[in-house]
Amino acid sequence: MTALGDRLFSGLATAAGVLILATLAGVAGFLVLEAWPAITADAPGLAKYIWPLAFGTVVAAAIAVVIAVPMAIAVALFISHIAPPRVAQPLSYLIDLLAAIPSVIYGLWGIAVLGPASVGLQRWLEEHLGFLPFFAGPASATGRTMLVAGVVLAVMILPIITAVARSVFVQTPRRLQEGAQALGATRWEMIRMTVLPFGRSAIISASMLGLGRALGETMAVAIVLSVSGAVTLNLIGSGNPSTIAAHIALDFPESSGPAVNALIAAGLVLFAVTLAVNMAARAVINRQLRI
């Protein structure tokens, strides 16, 4: 009875573990299977179809990461080293709350509040920084631009970056921090000399995790961005490239036949890229500790 129960239970637990790995393999397998007709039918055409989407995906994610990473490091430092310890925990709940809000609501907020509110700023960017290709204009009148989509993505990936960075910042060895302060370092000098070097790999890894999220984020971009399919670096115009994820969400319900296969092929590209980014991020952080 005992031996049987033990074997049964450990077998069940192992099976659950194997099932998870099989699911991940299944995601790759089924996507390849369903994308195969599109790949074999017209590979160059498919590449031409996916290229603007991939470009838009990278641009949106890049904006998000450029904005979110410095902000997230600051927020993590604020919670770990600057805020009084009694309020640090509630404050980190507030940041976690940002992660809990469904992406569709971020999209609604972006199109209804942030977009219209930023029209003036985007006009200003066109006027004063128009010599940069990013702000070439003409500025969109609705605010449904790549820049706004990137900012919304930045808000959405901020919590994950903050969480990873903070969990490592608080583990900076106490003796290093106190040593720096005993030598007369101010708090910022102490942070610069002990906390940031200690947390460097965590910051890299967290940024990559954030990048992975931004690449795959769907609804916020699908709602906010006004799409024309153009490949352009202009971030404040009304004609933008879509992203892979947003394009799938918007087109899938109305597609059938070969179009579905092409969409799944685009999804396969997204899956491969996010998988690679996430694996690299985990590999970096696992060298230091598991988050």
């Binding site: 991940l24 995601v27 089924f30 996507l31 795959g216 997204l270 899956f271």
Partner: peptide
């Protein structure tokens, strides 16, 4: 399992 937490939700839907 860690890597799976980063799978985009749309990919899960496609799966």
């Amino acid at each position: 399992v860690d890597v799976m937490t980063g799978i985009p939700s749309i990919v899960a839907g496609l799966f």
